[in-house]
Design a protein around this nucleic acid. Structure first.
Length: 301
DNA sequence: TCCCAGGAAGTTC
DNA sequence: GAACTTCATGGG
């Protein structure tokens, strides 16, 4: 059976752009992009599900290939997908800001309809942030795949295997040495296990973060955890909690994109970076995402 | 070989 | 506090 999720502001929605970003040359083990659709497995209350997501007539269509459709599973997956593709955003103001900047105006056309691709699962988002620290993205995706294929769960459908990110409980009891075998550094192994324990003990969760009064208090809760600095905290707040004004300071990708657009000339010029971002109040996270998008090049473009 | 990767923590001055 | 050092390994 198929279910449907409406999209706000469909004039600023381009499904092919979103799919292209998902499939932009990195090997993410957590979903599979096909022609016109993406497939992803979910797990809720011990139930595994597989959903094929496509676009038609102003809404996303979810075809349930496997797993139980109940009120709770449908609600869970719908909320996840709406967050994943930022379906409720109105980009009109963002594009106005882009067009006001000579160097970036092209993005409002070239990337039109690309929604912020989020990571709704907070644990996955934090784990991914830690994995991605200071290593190139190709290697980071390899580490993620090894982690998921060793400690995650999966389901088979139509001769394909669909992986589900390991639960905190499954990682909390590990020794760092077994992650070292997957080529995690000692520190990343320790960080990841520590965070898995915090999740397993319910010391951190989306509701806990959302209950805090503002951005800085959420950031502090995260950076007080060993292994999470400002970069990781702001990355996660942007990708998972949909903070609009989060800038992952120090991000190599952002710096390279700003240099490529002749917006800064020195990676240490924090003042120039802040001045640039101040042109996009409320859209700092989107701007960051579009800068990352600019680093990936479409064949033929 | 050398330098860089979508950093963080610890140490030194 | 700013500036190094260490971690750790793939990729160009």
């Amino acid at each position: 059976m198929t279910t449907s999720i409406p999209i706000s502001q469909t004039q600023h929605f381009n499904w092919q752009e979103c799919l292209w970003y998902l499939n932009r040359g990195f090997d993410d083990c957590i979903y599979q992009v096909r022609a016109g659709s993406v497939r992803r497995a979910f797990e809720l209350e011990g139930q595994q599900m597989l959903v094929d997501i496509s676009y038609a007539d102003g809404s996303l269509k979810l075809q349930w290939l496997a797993g139980l459709q109940s009120t709770s599973t449908i609600n869970h997956v719908h909320q996840f997908v709406a967050d994943w593709f930022d379906l409720e955003r109105d980009l009109t103001s963002f594009y106005t800001h882009l067009q006001a900047n000579k160097s970036l105006a092209y993005m409002a056309d070239n990337f039109k309809g690309l929604r912020f691709i989020g990571m709704p699962d907070l644990f996955e988002s934090l784990a991914w942030g830690i994995i991605g620290q200071q290593i190139n993205l190709s290697f980071a995706y390899k580490l993620k795949r090894r982690l998921v294929e060793t400690y995650g769960t999966s389901l088979r459908y139509d001769n394909e295997q669909y992986w589900i990110f390991p639960s905190p409980a499954n990682l909390a009891s590990l020794e760092p040495a077994v992650l070292r075998d997957l080529q995690f550094s000692q520190k990343k192994a320790e960080y990841l296990i520590t965070i898995a324990k915090l999740f397993a003990d319910n010391a951190i969760s989306k509701p806990i973060l959302f209950a805090l009064p503002d951005f800085l208090s959420r950031q502090k809760l995260l950076t007080d955890i060993r292994g999470i600095g400002v970069w990781t905290a702001n990355y996660v707040l942007m990708k998972s909690l949909k903070e609009n004004s989060s800038i992952p300071y120090g991000d190599v990708g952002i710096i390279n994109a700003l240099i490529a657009h002749s917006i800064i000339s020195d990676k240490k010029d924090v003042k120039a970076i802040d001045a640039f971002y101040s042109e996009f109040p409320g859209w700092e996270s989107y701007l960051t995402f579009y800068l990352w998008r600019s680093l990936a090049v479409k064949p033929g473009n």
